[in-house]
Amino acid sequence: MPPLAATPASVRVVTLNIDGKDYSARADETIIEVCRENKIPIPSLCYLDGLSIWAGCRLCLVEMAGQSRLFAACSTQVTEGMTVSTNTERLQRYRRTIVELLFAERSHVCSVCVSNGHCELQFMAQKCGVDHVRVPYRQVRNQVDSSHEAFRLDHNRCILCTRCVRVCDEIEGAHTWDVMGRGSDCQVITDLARPWGESDTCTGCGKCVQVCPTGALVKQGTSAGEMVKDKHFLPILARRRHAQ
């Protein structure tokens, strides 16, 4: 008896070229997913496997053959025959400038930071070759919220990647975090900008602390360089998300 005719797959498989090499991918995957799967380094600070796409840090921008504008690898789905360059001289220059802009925006002084040595912004600067910052530091003093019994929020070290907002909303389901304000006045807030310790919605799960790329969200009682993330957290987050 002949086998039953296969039902057509709902998602197609495509072949694309990244930095001169061919890769296969499902058509519903984004460029960054294909790159991560194949160990092609793509810098990003807001993207996190398991959370929704934000496309705000602009570090994962890539060049595409035949297109003059750049595409964010995290929010661009692959297509058949797509030719992507992830690390051109132009992209390197832009990434370096963006990291410099982030450093100058708030107060990122690594030597006194609780996350020194465990900070994604710090790694990013090293990877992008930022040895000094050409734009003037803005020297704005922001508040620190220590009202929560277990965690601390330091706006001076926040890069507004909104990973905390998304993990709290999408994984924990509490939606304690949100963003208020405009432009550089933007701040992540708990509830309606009340102190974190007074939040009615916060479950104290600490997911936001685990996903924070910098030293903005940390455990209470940590001192310089002591804020080390739980190395099992992010893989679990991604696995649980994909299992859904």
Binding site: W54, A55, G56, C57, R58, I98, L101, L102, A104, E105, V135, P136, R138, I159, L160, V179, G181, R182, G183, S184, D185, C186
Partner: peptide, 13 residues
């Protein structure tokens, strides 16, 4: 709006 880094901090610089 403050969402993306280049516009938020770049316009300020």
């Amino acid at each position: 709006c403050g969402k993306c880094v280049p516009c938020r901090t770049g316009t300020q610089q």
